[in-house]
Design a protein around this nucleic acid. Structure first.
Lengths: 196, 196
DNA sequence: TTTAATTAATTTACAGTGTAAATATTACAG
DNA sequence: CTGTAATATTTACACTGTAAATTAATTAAA
């Protein structure tokens, strides 16, 4: 007697297209301009559809974030593992910065828009971990091959933090003083790999 | 015949107390929870008072930002210029991280909350510049004393970016993998100053 | 084929937002 | 007092997220 429930794939399709529309709005304008009603209008459904398949607006953005984190992870995973390991590390850094540079909205979403209670979105935590994993593995390789010495966790974070720092200063328009990212970044990499 | 206009100091007093109330709300909750009506209620004035002495809500936040940037600059300026210059640089880094760590809300406001059209707020640009100036001067000292070699702009940005990167990853809760900021930061400084 | 059941989806409603426009209040010069 | 000009408040509007009420749709049983 009951009406047929939606299959999981049908639900996934809706969630996916909802997220896609949401992200396009976010890219065109900004965070504040993304409204539940606006997204629904793009999809041609009622506003409340969102609340059937998402918890709330924050849940939508958590999904957007998870998707983008996974895409960043994929980008890093696709970097060829050349030898020596230091070259691989450098290529990872380049790929990371390139992702941020070519998709600034995505990068801002990942690191520069506050999300309260990250931990209640396990998919998001998982996607974050996937991104970190690549950098950590590369650092371990470089240590094991003897190219650098030191604690793995420390080295990985130092490397990551430096790149992220430069990228986010750039995206926050803080790189004044006649210093552009494209000049600073290669020089920074050279410096980091100079003597070890 | 006209009613007495407010003096500039009276206007300044209002703007200051309005900003103070706004920042307290921002600290207690978050960006979204700061509303023009809410601030006005704290001050006991009507909501529209804000619009006489501020352009709009964004203008209020630009002021909050400028105030905090100036405070960061002051913190850095107060760091004693010890010798050798490398020690001074290290102390600046510590002070910078300490500011971010003890006042995470302020730091987030400075770097991690998007503000469109920074350039139309000259006071904000000025306060940002004041902060940068200290770091740049210290780097120049270290170069002139021969403690480090290289391009001044590059070195200053590399140093700044690394610290900022670690701080902001920490505030974004991205330092998992059993690595805390308090462990990573001193080790990072040691590494940066090891061989130059 | 009608009917009852049950889920999906929409509509309505509410409290709250930023802020423009209309209104009221105040204080001085004549 | 009265006109004037500045200050301050009130009202109003178009939005927002989302809870609650309602309608629509689809199935299985009678």
């Amino acid at each position: 007697m009951p009406r047929k429930s939606l299959t999981q794939t049908e639900i996934d399709i809706f969630r996916t297209s909802f997220c896609k529309a949401a992200y396009e709005l976010y890219e065109q304008k900004d965070y504040q301009a993304v409204t539940m009603r606006g997204i629904a209008k793009v999809l041609g459904c009622s506003s409340m559809m969102a609340y059937r398949y998402f918890e709330n607006k924050e849940d939508v953005f958590a999904s957007l974030r998870a998707i983008r984190f996974d895409r960043l992870a994929q980008t890093l995973e696709e970097v060829a593992e050349t030898l020596p390991p230091m070259e691989y590390l450098r290529d990872l850094g380049k790929a990371y910065a390139s992702f941020a540079h070519t998709q600034p909205h995505a990068y801002r979403l990942l690191y520069m828009i506050p999300i309260p209670q990250v931990k209640i979105y396990p998919e998001l935590v998982k996607a974050q971990g996937r991104t970190q994993k690549v950098l950590f593995a590369a650092t371990r390789q470089a240590i094991e091959s003897g190219d650098i010495q030191g604690d793995q966790v420390l080295l990985a974070h130092t490397y990551w933090a430096s790149i992220h720092g430069l990228v986010s200063l750039d995206l926050a328009n803080q790189l004044t003083q006649g210093a552009s990212f494209n000049e600073l970044f290669p020089a920074m990499l050279n410096r980091m790999f100079k003597n070890d």
